[in-house]
């Protein structure tokens, strides 16, 4: 009967490692505009902290639920794994048409973190994959905020061709999008590999199908984002200001640190 105790914990975890429709709360939070200067959790840094912290809470709840469910509650975590896989695919599919930066990153966050459930059902320790997937989104989060500050909105298709007008920013942006869609050497890539390697031991289909399809759709969505912002013919009626060397170094350093974290993640996995 441990599953009765575990169920509410898993449901609570479904807000942190988002499961549809509980995931709507996280996505609303990401899209929320600050009510004023004192609305700290609606500021980009506050939101980033929450987005990084939520998976940790989710992992704790999942592990507590696992412990309470015991051996007889395996079916329950399998149901949640299936739910997680479907949520990930749903959001990856929706990501294809997202043009607004905040909606885009909220949907990718949901799609990525929902995959942790797939691993959790198959005895993959969820902490490192959850952290890896969440951390991979941070550089893009801040760069999209940078776009909002410059142009008033972070939206694909409104100001294409930034590679010709803001080459430094574009380089960072490309690297951040690649990290977000789990391209090597981002922690996201190793997190996906970790989930795949661990999950394949229990059930290849339930693990590999959602992982692979979601990953494929992320790539498509990532290219859509690059196409509408970095590539194309730049507009002549806008003022462009590229990032300075210091910002470039800070962001570049952050990306390098992420790559290092990815390597640590993979060494922990092997």
């Amino acid at each position: 009967m441990g599953w009765i105790l575990a169920l509410p914990l898993f449901l609570l975890a479904g807000f942190c490692l988002p499961l549809f429709p509980l995931s709507i709360a996280v996505n609303r939070f990401v899209q929320r505009q600050p009510a004023g200067a004192g609305d700290r959790f609606a500021q980009p840094r506050g939101k980033a902290l929450v987005l990084l912290g939520l998976p940790l809470v989710g992992v704790l709840l999942v592990q507590a639920g696992h412990w309470l469910a015991g051996d007889g509650g395996g079916w329950l975590i399998d149901v949640f794994a299936l739910w997680g896989g479907l949520t990930s695919l749903l959001y990856a599919f929706r990501l294809l048409s997202a043009r607004d930066g905040q909606i885009w990153i909220g949907q990718l966050y949901t799609s990525a973190l929902a995959l942790v459930w797939v691993g959790a059902a198959h005895d993959v320790p969820p902490l490192l994959p959850a952290l890896g997937l969440a951390a991979s989104l941070l550089p893009l989060w801040f760069l999209l905020d940078g776009l909002t500050c410059r142009f008033g909105i972070a939206r694909t298709g409104l100001y294409p061709g930034l590679s010709l007008r803001m080459p430094r920013f574009s380089t960072l942006f490309v690297a951040a999008v690649l990290a977000a869609v789990a391209v090597p050497f981002s922690p996201g890539f190793f997190a996906v590999a970790n989930l795949a390697f661990g999950g394949a031991a229990s059930n290849e289909l339930l693990t590999l199908v959602p992982l692979s399809l979601a990953w494929l759709l992320w790539t498509w969505a990532g290219i859509n984002l690059l196409t509408g912002i970095v590539f194309g013919e730049p507009r002549g009626d806008l003022d462009y200001a590229d990032v300075d060397r210091r910002t470039m170094l800070v962001h570049g350093g952050g990306l390098a640190a992420l790559a290092l974290f990815g390597l640590i993640l993979v060494e922990g996995m092997l």
């Binding site: 996906v192 590999a193 795949a196 390697f197 999950g199 394949a200 031991a201 290849e204 693990t207 590999l208 992982l211 692979s212 990953w215």
Partner: peptide, 9 residues
């Protein structure tokens, strides 16, 4: 990726 996961398992 799937092949590598199967090999590992």
């Amino acid at each position: 990726l799937a092949a590598v996961a199967l090999v590992y398992h």
